[in-house]
Amino acid sequence: MGLYIEAHIRADLDALWAHTQDPARHQRWDLRFTEIDHLARVPGEPQRLRYATRVLPCLVIAGTGVLAGERERPDGTRTSALRFASPHPLSLLAEGSGYWRYVPVGDGVRFLTGYDYRPRWGRFGALADRFVLRPLTGWATAWSFDRLRLWLERGITPERARRNWLAETAARALTAVGCVAGLSRGPVLDDLSPAVAFLVPLLLVVALSLALGAPPLATTPAARRCRRTPSARVTAPRVLRALERQP
C-alpha cells in the first residue's frame, strides 16, 4: 500500500472497534472527513457509505465507499477494508482502497492502516499528489490516529484535543515570531551591558529551539507519535483483495 500508519493504543479491542466502525464516532476523530454516513444496506452485499470533506466554507467534496469487515479471526485480530471513490471534479483523489487492522498486544492494540489511491488530473495531478496531497493525507491520518488514542486512553474528546492542538500551535508560532523579531534587533542590544547583551540572544535562541523542536504536550495530538513505515513486510488482507475484485 502507498501509505502506512500505525498507532499503539492502550485500550480494549471492542472499544477501539466501536470508535472506528461507528460513523458518528469515526467522523469526530478523523481529520480527513467532515461527514460519514452508512447508506441503506442491501441484503447479501457489503455495507456502502457516503463520506464528505469540507475543504472550504462553501466547498464540500463527497464520495462513496464499500466497506467489509472481519470482526473475529482465528488469531484474535480484526480487519476491515474499504474501497472508495469520489466523482467530484475538484477532488484530486479519484479512487482507492485500504484497510484497518487491529492486532491485540499485551497492553493494548496495534491499530494500523495501509491504503493507496489513484489521483486524477493527469501529470499535474500526479505532481500535486506527490508533493502536496500524499504528504498531507499521511500527516492527517497519523494525527487523527493519535487524537483517537487520546480519546480512548485519557478521555480527551476529539473536540478538546483539537482545541489543545490549536492553542499549542498558536503558542509555538507566537514564541517563534517573537524570538526571531528579538534576534533581528541587534542594534538595540548594543545599549546593554556585555553580559546581558550576550545572555538575551542566547535565551532567545533556546526559546526558539524549544518552540520549534520540543515534544508536544501529552494532551495534544501529534502525528509524530505514530509509526509511518511498517516494521516488517506488509501484505494487504484477504478481505481487501476480495473487495477490490467486486464490480
Rank of each mutant, 00 (worst) to 15 (best):
G76M: 05
T229I: 00
P46E: 08
D129H: 06
L3K: 05
L56R: 12
L210R: 05
T219N: 11
L204F: 01
G76E: 05
G186H: 07
D107E: 14
L152D: 05
G106V: 14
F84I: 13
T235K: 06
G186K: 03
T64D: 13
F84C: 14
S184Q: 05
G125F: 06
G2Y: 00
G106K: 02
A128P: 08
L67A: 08
L174C: 12
T20V: 14
D30Q: 12
R160H: 08
L16W: 07
W165G: 06
G182A: 11
G213F: 15
R32S: 14
R224F: 08
C58E: 09
L148R: 01
R78S: 15
G44N: 09
R134S: 15
D22Q: 11
D30F: 07
D30T: 08
V103R: 15
I9R: 03
A232Q: 11
R71S: 07
Y115G: 03
D146W: 04
T219R: 09
L31I: 05
S91Y: 04
R163A: 13
G155V: 07
L208I: 08
G2C: 04
I156K: 03
L243A: 02
D191T: 15
D191R: 07
D12N: 09
L189N: 04
A161C: 04
H38G: 13
G76D: 07
L49P: 00
R225G: 12
Q21H: 14
G122E: 09
Q27V: 15
A167S: 12
D37I: 14
L93D: 03
A81E: 01
G108M: 09
P135Y: 03
L189G: 05
A68Q: 11
R162V: 14
V60D: 05
L82N: 01
R147H: 02
P119A: 12
S80W: 00
A207S: 12
L210F: 08
P247M: 01
R147Q: 12
L90F: 13
D37S: 14
C179T: 01
T64A: 15
A242H: 02
A232E: 10
T20M: 10
G155L: 12
I5M: 08
A171G: 11
G2T: 01
R238Y: 11
C179G: 00
L3W: 00
C226I: 00
A142R: 04
